[in-house]
Amino acid sequence: MSADRALRDPLDDSVRDQVEAALAAHQGRPGPLLQVLHEVQNRLGYVPPAAIPIIAEALNLSRADVHGVVTFYHHFRQAPGGRHVIQVCQAESCRAMHCDKLTEHAQRKLGVQLHGTTADGRYTLEPVYCLGNCACSPAVMIDGELHGRVTPDAFDALIAPLS
């Protein structure tokens, strides 16, 4: 998408405001791109394609450079996620405590596969490779809150209050 076309879309005006605020918070520090992208994602929930040319121009990088960084890191999202992001750990320690079964349960319960977002935009289900809660496996993170020793029943109880 060209920068000109991005500017014509009224939706992108709010994107531009948020991206510029993110740039203002980190520009001027050495090597700020990752921190800018974090700030954009914190503000908008994802890094929209329209943000790329704005960031590239401000940091004197090519759009390819910025795109390359956004796509390299698992954390950055290029499309909006669900209202709740649910991460189920898939790493060895959680495997030893049968996170495969928990993952199957979560997929069934939410009606969505790993990496997917439910049709109603409520949940995004993601794999994650270690939450550092390995003495309390299996671990799940919901909207930044960590949970340990998560059984399928406990998972249901954690999901129940989410709207």
Binding site: P30, G31, P32, L33, L34, Q35, L37, H38, D65, G68, V69, F72, Y73, H74, H75, F76, V128, Y129
Partner: peptide, 26 residues
Amino acid sequence: VRLGAGAYICGEETSMLESLEGKRGE
């Protein structure tokens, strides 16, 4: 404090330095 972005490879020291510079963690 600078945040990574979910890339295991960035625990490798030269990849971490690339990432600290705001680049792909190669």
